[in-house]
């Protein structure tokens, strides 16, 4: 961004969203002298992304969060949420949430899949807003600098999950655990409820995906029905839960990385905790869109149609009511 454009962005943000601007001003980056950090993060671009994200956060997904006080205010930290929803909107919502809700806002550095680097605009947008391509060395560098790093241990397998597999965690990668032990970074298990239904994923166009260098190319019913308009995600209600941080490095020295059995055990502990948070969140939520669909479902049931695909809990409740 040119110097004048930066000044203009700041002036506009100050005028339109003074409170947000004040918080964003508290963010610190490791400026190399031209307004960029070594990874290409630019504060003004991140500010713009935050404001755009905040609109979606507030108005479209109506995000609620619990336990943000569990995220350390300083030092290296790893946020490890479940990943889902075809597009990484969950990453964006967590990024907005920590800036909006933390006592002292911190810039979230999201580890992005390698393939994102290949594409024009995506590549630049990712770097300018704080994303980093998932090379281990980058990850290490950020933790050394004491940054807050968000890593999705499921990888792209998470976003490529089918609708029928929603809220079932895929296998966790172990790299984050090794880096956590080496760099003494606490791990905050995090669950995102609501993202898994934003794009009901039907099937994967694998040959096209392969040709385009994508890990998958999901087709949703909305895309089939409305074409490009189907790319707009459903306005599901997001709820984010931050669990209490794990400080494994206190009990396990960095040398533990040489013992895969222990590492896999620790990764499983994190995975189980994320799954618990998900399950608790699912039990508490009122419905996919933030309100109960039971009256509609009951109505559909009465006219003889099947209840629409929804949560199993909802269906059980319907059956219980019918039984009563």
């Amino acid at each position: 961004m040119k110097q004048k454009a930066r000044q203009r962005v700041r002036a506009i943000l100050k005028m339109l969203a003074p409170e947000d601007y004040e918080r964003l001003e508290e963010l610190k980056i490791n400026d190399l002298g031209f307004g960029y950090d070594p990874f290409g993060l630019e504060l003004e671009s991140a500010m713009l992304a935050y404001i755009a994200g905040k609109i979606v956060y507030k108005s479209w997904f109506r995000v609620e969060s619990h336990g943000v006080e569990n995220v350390p205010l300083a030092g290296p930290v790893l946020i490890t949420p479940n990943h889902s929803g075809v597009l990484p909107i969950d990453a964006m919502m967590i990024g907005v949430d920590v800036v909006a809700k933390m006592e002292r806002p911190r810039a979230m550095r999201a580890v992005v899949d390698n393939f994102a680097g290949l594409f024009p605009f995506v590549n630049t947008a990712c770097y300018r807003c704080g994303g980093i391509i998932g090379a281990r060395r980058n990850f290490e560098e950020l933790l050394k600098q004491g940054e807050m790093v968000m890593v999705f241990p499921e990888g792209h397998k998470g976003t490529g999950k089918k609708f029928s597999d929603r809220y079932r965690l895929r296998r966790f990668n172990v790299g984050f655990m090794e880096l956590s032990l080496v760099h003494k970074a606490p791990i905050v298990p995090t669950a995102v409820i609501g993202a898994e239904e934003q794009y009901p994923y039907m099937f994967d166009l694998k040959p096209v995906a392969r040709a385009l260098n994508f890990p998958y190319l999901p087709i949703t019913p909305l895309m089939a029905l409305f074409g490009p308009l189907g790319m707009i995600p459903l306005p599901t209600k997001y709820t984010i839960y931050y669990g209490e941080p794990f400080h494994f490095y206190r009990d396990y020295p960095p040398d533990t990385v040489k013992d895969p059995e222990i590492i896999y055990g620790l990764v499983d502990t994190v995975k189980r905790r994320v799954q618990e948070l998900i399950d608790a969140g699912l039990r508490e939520r009122k419905g996919v869109f933030g309100f109960s669909l039971l009256p509609f479902k009951a109505l559909l049931g009465r006219v003889g149609g099947e209840a629409p695909a929804g949560e199993e809990e909802d269906r059980k409740q319907i059956q219980e009511r019918a039984g009563a």
Binding site: P38, F39, G40, N114, G117, L118, N123, I132, I133, G134, A135, R136, R137, N138, E141
Partner: peptide
């Protein structure tokens, strides 16, 4: 490569 680490040693 697009996925090179930011600093090459």
């Amino acid at each position: 490569r697009p996925h090179n680490p930011i600093y090459l040693d």
